[in-house]
Design a binder for these strands. Structure first.
Length: 317
DNA sequence: GTTGATCCGTCAACCGAGAC
DNA sequence: GTCTCGGTTGACGGATCAAC
């Protein structure tokens, strides 16, 4: 097994999104990666500039941010070749590590555009170093910029940020300082290629919460009626945690519930409704152990929603 | 400038259940 | 049948982060 720490640089339509390609809002122009062995020692590096086809001119913001010129891109190779080369270099047992979640999404979106998603089967289990950095050094899920994290750790800045290989190197250096156990406990799941059938559904248990990723449904209603989606099983003992407050909608994209396990107390259920590119829906449901005070907060939240609506109706009359 | 995530919110409208 | 109420949706908007 090898860790593949990678970073991508991409460009977008220089003339605004109206004139952009809807299937490819961002076009990858550079891939940088480092291969680390299971003890996280450097083994190899990968760098490839990609010759753009869809957006040949750099967007002005991209030009500002990236340390790369249009003439550099002319030296690149086509995306299809670059990705094939990259995947071959990664090898079969690669564990991907990235700063944030967007690189894996854009990689797959670009691969889908070129009908080569078969080279990277999803959902993808990976390590989000940005998330792990927050957990390791700030005790919570924060979203620091890569440079901010390097400054925080007082690490040496050897190269320009926003070049794929440099950013991959910085990400790898941060990764090396994070306990392996923490990375393994808090891995991430990319669902650009979401589960399609019941047997593909994902259920995982993290130290403080459980996560369930459902199959696809035609509508939100169907999704929130499904037994697998609405069930609240205590991830500590496996017993059903009975609902004290049944699922209620917090907004159009999220539902919440309160459940109680006789052995382990209160749990907060959160169901996020996600829409696929094809207009179907799937659910990411988390169940987190909470205190009695937090349980009371959910009750207050629900009651506040009810009260507000009541007041509004009386005002209207 | 664009996208995505995650919060927060408002507002109009619809549906179904229950009370009257 | 009418009304009230709870639950829900969809379409917004704003804010704050991040990514390029």
């Amino acid at each position: 097994m090898n860790y593949i720490v990678f970073d991508l640089e991409w460009n977008q339509c220089p003339y605004g999104k109206e004139r952009g390609n809807k299937r490819l809002p961002f076009e990858i122009i550079e891939i940088g990666a480092l291969k680390l062995d299971e003890n996280r020692n450097y083994k190899d590096s990968f760098h490839q500039v990609v010759k753009p086809v869809v957006y040949k001119k750099l967007h002005y913001r991209t030009k500002e941010i990236l340390d790369i010129k249009g003439s550099d891109l002319e030296q690149g190779i086509p995306f299809i070749e670059a990705v094939k080369k990259f995947m071959k270099w990664c090898g079969p047992e690669a564990k991907f590590c990235t700063w944030g979640s967007s690189d894996l999404v854009e990689l797959q979106r670009n691969m889908k555009y070129y009908h080569m998603l078969n080279l990277l089967k999803g959902p993808i289990f990976y390590y989000d170093i940005q998330k792990l950095f927050g957990l390791a050094y700030e005790g919570q899920r924060t979203a620091r910029s890569l440079e901010n994290a390097i400054d925080f750790l007082e690490m040496k800045k050897d190269g320009q940020f926003h070049r794929a290989l440099n950013d991959a190197y910085y990400t790898a250096e941060i990764f090396k300082g994070i306990p392996v156990k923490m990375a393994e406990d808090y891995y991430s799941i990319d669902c650009y290629q979401n589960p399609k059938t019941r047997k593909d559904q994902i259920y995982t248990v993290f130290p403080e919460y459980s996560k369930f990723i459902s199959r696809e449904f035609l509508s939100k209603e169907d999704a929130m009626k499904d037994r697998d989606v609405v069930q609240t099983r205590c991830f500590l003992c496996g017993k059903t945690a009975k609902k004290k407050i049944r699922w209620f909608s917090v907004n159009a994209k999220a539902h919440m519930c309160l459940a109680f396990c006789p052995n382990h107390g209160y749990f907060r259920g959160k169901a996020r409704l996600k829409k696929t590119d094809e207009g179907k829906y799937y659910v990411v449901r988390t169940l987190k152990k909470i205190t009695q005070e937090e349980a009371e907060h959910i009750r207050e939240k629900r009651d506040a929603l009810r009260k507000k609506r009541r007041q509004k109706r009386h005002q209207d009359k």
